[in-house]
């Protein structure tokens, strides 16, 4: 059975959230931009098999982002000149 639109939306939100966890500015922006582009591009896919395939790819991607964003947080570097520094709370 193909995943429901609610599940797909949940996946999209999780991917965006994991992408935002990258400490590296360029990677963070890229994976956010790419996720937005990919989900938009496949918005009108109706074929159930294809939806399942894309969904599974998304799950793999989420796992990858989970691992790689953690690594990105382990090795941090100075912020870029275009990157606003986070305020300390």
């Amino acid at each position: 059975m193909a995943p429901t639109s609610k599940q797909v939306l949940q996946l999209y939100k999780s991917i965006l959230s994991k992408a935002s966890k990258f400490d590296n500015y360029n990677f963070r922006e890229y994976f956010r931009r790419k996720a937005q582009h990919d989900f938009k591009e496949h918005k009108n896919v109706a074929d159930e098999q294809q939806i399942t395939r894309l969904y599974n790819e998304g799950i793999d991607q989420l796992a990858l982002l989970n691992r790689q964003s953690a690594i990105s947080q382990m090795f941090t570097f100075e912020k870029l000149v275009v990157e606003p520094l986070k305020k300390h709370h």
């Binding site: 990258f22 990677f27 994976f31 690594i71 100075e78 912020k79 870029l80 000149v81 990157e83």
Partner: peptide, 18 residues
């Protein structure tokens, strides 16, 4: 803002994709 320069020298080498 941060201090690290923007990387615009991808002909020399590129970032390793995660």
């Amino acid at each position: 803002y941060g201090t690290r320069p923007i990387y615009l020298d991808v002909q020399a080498t590129t970032q390793t994709d995660p």
